[in-house]
Design a protein around this nucleic acid. Structure first.
Lengths: 344, 344
DNA sequence: GACCGGAGTGGAACCGGTTCCACTTTTGTA
DNA sequence: TACAAAAGTGGAACCGGTTCCACTCCGGTC
């Protein structure tokens, strides 16, 4: 466990100056005679020399590192997103610091401070919705921020990558309406987020297209954190005129919602038709397999990374950009036509 | 986007030397007059000063950072493990660099190099099984390594945190034997890993206890990566005298295995009783809910972190340590007694 | 043959912290 | 009151890279 060699050790051993070694390390930073380059490379290999990231970072002022601030790795959607982003970043030679917020604004604020201390060049995040000024300050300090999946309306200056929320919600709703359902429950994200609002908008737009009026009682916007999904399920089903179909359009609450449905023992799709937002591995292992709006996680990962790297390299126009990718509707077996009851 | 203040800016603004500011920043590093401490803290707050991690790291030689090298965040087991470790580490003021290997030795090797460059003090990992010399070298360089969930037999010097593998497998097997099953399929990890071997050992031990001989055909050790689980399921069920019960004891292959069972359309538990290792969120959403060996992810996370931090602070005896935690058997509805067929 | 420009090289400053050490001031004790 | 020990302070070296700049060789051009 003797200490690692430094650039000066390499220089000495190779009989050159540190400048030369540095230039070998960073091609394009200056000329080096082929013979010496060869020599230096051999010494580096013999000594097992590796440049220390901290030293480089200190002198150049930034790191090829981005932060990823995600709600909760225990949720398959975020976990897969993280997986793809980490993977994709690596292929660009960029490291990723993964932080989780557990949907807690304080932890989110901490995470941002930490990332700032580490001089990351960019951050990809699913924001909790709070810390508005903090996000703004981060950006003012030159850190490139990209929101993915969700955003905060107050922060119009921030890049966003998400699915076509209005359209996706509209299609899911129209699918239900097309099956004859007229009372369709909707569990969405907080109206304080653009995601929540857009999906509600799509839901309403579908109803308009079918000339069916919307019962506001059937729309539940619940927080990302906690067990809001389960509770909403409970209260929706307790309604005297309860819904015959349910759309869970809050990614973070899908598990909670489905778990409650299973606990209650509702028969799907006979008693309740269900569509959920995002295609976790287990959605086709349930009984019946769930019809889903599939968020193209790869696309979200690729675009958000491309955006943040593009900004870091300054090769993007300054105007904030919003990228919306199309989400697939994947019909499986959790929806069925409404059985017309002659009584009503 | 003006540049961030440095410690010298703070010193100037507060009318003191950088030494004093540094001592304020690091209590216990020397005395500071209360009035000046007060003054410095106020200036720090006004300027929004934050010490740059890279500078500190360069001068002290290491970081309060650990690496987490995990197979695959898309797998709920690893994702939850990562979630808990990141969370737990934060409460100790330690940052975590998450890397994924996708079970690929090359990516694993890359990850280790990267972590080395970042001067991490420790690494928690679910090793792929390869890169034996690389792990050894890492440790020789003073990086504290803790394996979690799996290990590599060649590396006896490395700390390990896992569940009681022999015992867990034995109990699962005995549960099946107790229900009358005599032909029990086992899908385990590679025999090259201690985990794989221990679980097979537990399986055999249970058979001994019941004085039932083991048919080696029923044991399938499959790789962590790929679709080995699904394939094993297929070939086990294709056996002329196929098993009436199945234990999936390879964490990374549970999803693959269950997916195949669902595709084939085997009726659980009527045609096949099933127990899987590790309790993902979806295991109780399937139909029927699966009986599982629940790996106490929190315990795995807490212990592995404690171990790596303990070593980093040098407050642990040098001998390598193995911590085995007890795993719960959670019976649900995927196992039933063997219906005795009078024909055989 | 004088001159120019580019390739190749090394010295040294610099990034922003920490820490050692020498120095001054205060406090405590005989 | 005298003097030692402790508290408080600032200067400067140091960590290990990058980069600017001055300088020495070259070969090629009038």
């Amino acid at each position: 466990m003797k200490k690692a060699p430094t650039i000066r050790d390499v220089a000495t051993a190779a009989g050159v100056s540190v400048s030369v070694v540095s230039r070998v390390l960073n091609p394009d930073s200056g000329p080096v005679a082929p013979a010496k380059r060869e020599m230096v490379l051999r010494v580096i290999d013999e000594l097992g020399y590796r440049p220390r990231a901290a030293a480089r970072e200190l002198s150049v002022g930034h790191t090829p590192t981005i932060g990823l601030v995600v709600a909760d790795l225990a949720n398959p959607f975020f976990a897969q997103l993280a997986d793809r982003i980490v993977w994709e970043a690596r292929s660009h030679g960029v490291q990723v610091m993964v932080m989780t917020t557990q949907e807690d604004p304080h932890l989110e604020a901490d995470s941002l401070d930490t990332l700032l201390d580490r001089s990351v060049g960019g951050v990809i995040a699913t924001p909790t919705g709070a810390n508005v000024e903090k996000w703004a300050r981060l950006q003012a300090l030159g850190v490139n921020v990209v929101f993915v999946d969700r955003t905060i309306p107050e922060l119009a200056e921030v890049d966003l990558v998400s699915i076509e929320n209005v359209d996706s919600a509209r299609r899911a709703t129209e699918h239900m309406l097309g099956l004859g359902h007229t009372r369709i429950g909707l569990i969405s994200g907080p109206v304080g987020t653009s995601t929540g609002r857009s999906r509600i908008q799509g839901y309403q737009s579908a109803h308009n297209n079918f000339s069916i009026s919307v019962d506001p009682q059937l729309i539940r916007d619940v927080l990302f954190r906690g067990d809001g999904g389960g509770d909403a399920v409970g209260s929706l089903l307790a309604l005297p005129d309860h819904p015959t179909a349910l759309i869970v359009a809050n990614t973070a609450q899908v598990q909670s919602s489905i778990r409650r449905l299973v606990q209650i023992g509702v028969r799907i799709p006979d008693e309740l038709s269900v569509i959920v937002f995002d295609d976790n591995p287990w959605t086709e292992l349930t009984s019946p397999p769930l019809s889903v709006i599939r968020q193209p996680i790869d696309m979200l990962a690729v675009h958000s990374l491309e955006l943040v790297l593009g900004r870091m390299q300054g090769r993007l126009p300054p105007a904030p950009r919003t990228i919306e990718v199309k989400a697939d509707f994947v019909p499986r077996s959790s929806c069925s036509p409404l059985t017309l009851s002659p009584i009503s």
